[in-house]
Write a protein that binds this DNA or RNA. Structure first.
Lengths: 217, 217
DNA sequence: ACTTTCTAAACTGTATACAAAATACTTTCT
DNA sequence: AGAAAGTATTTTGTATACAGTTTAGAAAGT
């Protein structure tokens, strides 16, 4: 493999943004919790400036919300709001599954299968954090299979935004295993290369996901 | 109507962000053009700090793109990329039309009709900028009719992102009038309250929109 | 004890200075 | 003339200071 161009060094602000995204997605910061510029600056060994930039970018992406007069908070949604988000996500994911089913190729199939193998491994090991990452990668592989980076980006954003709520349904090793198993049915539907089957399969998956997240929250 | 809570005063960074969004959406800044912190700071009578914040937020929203090593640019898409964006937008808009058709109520109908009246007025007057605003408001009214702010937000983002490319198809008064007329068919389909009709109508509208944008770019 | 007013502390947004990195331009060498 | 090295300029990211706004807590008044 040819070496890639030299990657620009990640700025402090980017580093902070990434770290916060991961924590929030993993549900490590509770909904409604306020993020404090000054203590984050201390924690990351930086000044307020890059912290402010990271927080501002995350509000622009809807990952965080700005208080009315002050403060930046991890978004906290009512049951109604949560169902609206899942509805939107549900529609996007169904579109992705439909398009992916139409566009499967050797690479995308392999990527989905490899990602699923990682999910299974993490679930068997009872590795909660590892499973969250592997689950993320699994869904990303489906998004990539659409061959449309913009669809993939939208879907990823929703996946990230619902991360904190979905993370709570993975309480035990048994939950992880059940989740990994549900992926198998989904893969079968997508690999059928039939749009309607894929779309329907994803809708079922998302409905189950939502129900479980409701129960756990 | 009861007075709303006092709105927080808009920061300089927010002001700059809004102004840039409008200009970019209206196609006033060419794709590929670099935005320069220093001259923007001069132009807005501010320091680099709020300019950087605005630019950073706009890159986080995908409205602008970061150069590999330096610079922030108005996104420039290849024909292939443009078709991918429109494809994603097409899917989102069709979902919105479908959901809106299922959820119409007196308020949403009125809003759509009022927005269309504004489109017609702007088109008849040959008011290019006014038409862009009215067109934006028309689509926003449809998104709002979904009753799902998250669907609406995604759709609005795509609408905004494709603004520069779509703006170019509104070259003459005749183009504005044709666009406003195409809205009528779309309204009829959505107001049919039939999901499939609404979805199909929106797909037609988006296909025509894309073809026209291709021709004009 | 409760309410109002005042004060101090915390938070927010911005300007400015500084240093490092990237790029453009000029000079020197082959 | 073309390439390499050196220099100057521009751009980027960050730290810090400052001023304005908001909030919390203390003091005074009823």
């Amino acid at each position: 493999m040819k070496a890639e161009k030299t990657e620009p060094r990640q700025s402090t602000a980017q580093r902070i943004e990434q770290a916060l995204i991961e924590e929030i997605s993993a549900g490590e910061v509770s909904p409604g919790q306020r993020l404090d510029e000054v203590s984050l600056a201390t924690r990351f060994g930086a000044s307020r400036t890059p912290v402010r930039e990271a927080l501002s970018r995350l509000t622009a992406q809807g990952v965080l919300v700005q208080g009315e007069r002050r403060g930046v908070f991890v978004a906290e949604y009512s049951r109604k709001e949560l169902s609206q988000i899942f509805e939107a996500m549900h529609e996007i994911e169904a579109c992705c599954a439909r398009i992916a089913a139409q566009r499967l190729n050797l690479l995308s199939r392999s990527e989905i299968e490899a990602a699923q193998a990682d999910c299974v491994a993490a679930a068997e090991a009872g590795d909660h954090v590892g499973y969250l990452r592997a689950n993320e990668a699994f869904h990303s592989a489906i998004y990539r299979a659409t061959g449309n980076p913009y669809m993939a980006e939208i879907a990823s954003e929703f996946h990230r935004r619902t991360g904190p709520f979905r993370a709570k349904k993975f309480g035990s090793r048994k939950d992880l295993i059940a989740s990994a198993e549900s992926h198998q049915a989904l893969i079968r539907d997508i690999f059928s290369e039939d749009s309607a089957t894929a779309s329907k399969g994803m809708r079922s998956h998302m409905t189950a996901s939502f129900m479980q997240a409701l129960k756990a929250n």
